[in-house]
């Protein structure tokens, strides 16, 4: 097919003229990845729910802490400006701590659901290798699948969590809570949450997929889940 452009190397491999490479066009890889999500819809949704919950928790923490940070400290108890400032600093530290904790929780949640979803497909990976897939094909397929799931789940998770967090603050402080929510900070936290969700999802999928792809095909085929 492409023998005009790519002259054959002196025959190391059986098979003779023409292409010596196996291939997986990106469009095809994309359609296979989407099919994987569609056909295993409920399994994919459960996996995605793991990501969603993690990011929702992160989003809720963000929503609340942004408002808390920007709520003026009421001077009813007659605190000095300095004391008020200290109180605010403490609140900020507490919020940072909460955000970090929720990040850890969502990392563990996402890693767990993605690891499982790859492990149960080791045999499929072994089969693909027997059919001529390169390790990179397998990684590409899982990358596309995880990327897509990660983006969707992170957006939904953030929307749910952030709104929930803000609503709780509105109940607590009244509608003026919204005044203490700078749009820029909201967008920033959206960016951080979605990035965290996608990166974690992709890492937690691609790492075990890579490991499985590197195994000898026989070992991947043997694995029973």
């Amino acid at each position: 097919m492409e023998s005009a452009q790519t002259p054959n190397q002196p025959g190391r491999l059986i098979g003779g003229a023409g292409q010596r490479q196996v291939q997986l066009p990106l469009a095809k890889a994309f359609s296979i990845a989407m099919q994987n999500i569609r056909v295993r819809f409920w399994r994919s949704m459960i996996t995605a729910a793991g990501v969603m919950l993690g990011i929702a928790f992160l989003g809720a923490t963000f929503g609340q802490s942004i408002i808390e940070e920007n709520t003026p400290v009421k001077n009813a108890q007659g605190l000095s400006a300095q004391q008020a400032q200290i109180q605010k600093e403490e609140a900020k530290t507490r919020q940072n701590w909460l955000v970090s904790m929720s990040l850890i929780v969502c990392t563990v949640g996402i890693a767990n659901s993605m690891f499982m979803s790859v492990t149960e497909r080791f045999k499929e990976i072994g089969t693909m290798k027997c059919l001529g897939a390169l390790d990179s094909f397998i990684v590409t397929l899982f990358l596309l699948e995880a990327g897509f799931l990660g983006v969707i789940a992170s957006f939904i998770g953030f929307a749910v969590g952030f709104l929930g967090g803000v609503l709780m603050k509105i109940f607590q402080l009244g509608p003026e809570a919204l005044e203490y929510l700078p749009p820029l900070r909201a967008i920033q936290s959206l960016g951080i949450s979605v990035a965290a969700g996608v990166i974690l999802t992709v890492l937690a999928t691609v790492m075990p997929a890579m490991k499985a792809a590197k195994l000898p095909a026989a070992a991947a085929l043997r694995s029973e889940i």
Binding site: G15, Q21, V39, E124, G126, A217, L221
Partner: peptide, 24 residues
């Protein structure tokens, strides 16, 4: 690796006891 993949793809066909079709 690429030549081995080519070999598996073009020169050898595999059949297994457990069929190993791609389920989706």
């Amino acid at each position: 690796a690429a030549e081995l993949a080519y070999l598996r793809c073009r020169r050898i066909g595999y059949i297994f006891q457990t069929f190993n079709l791609i389920p989706v």
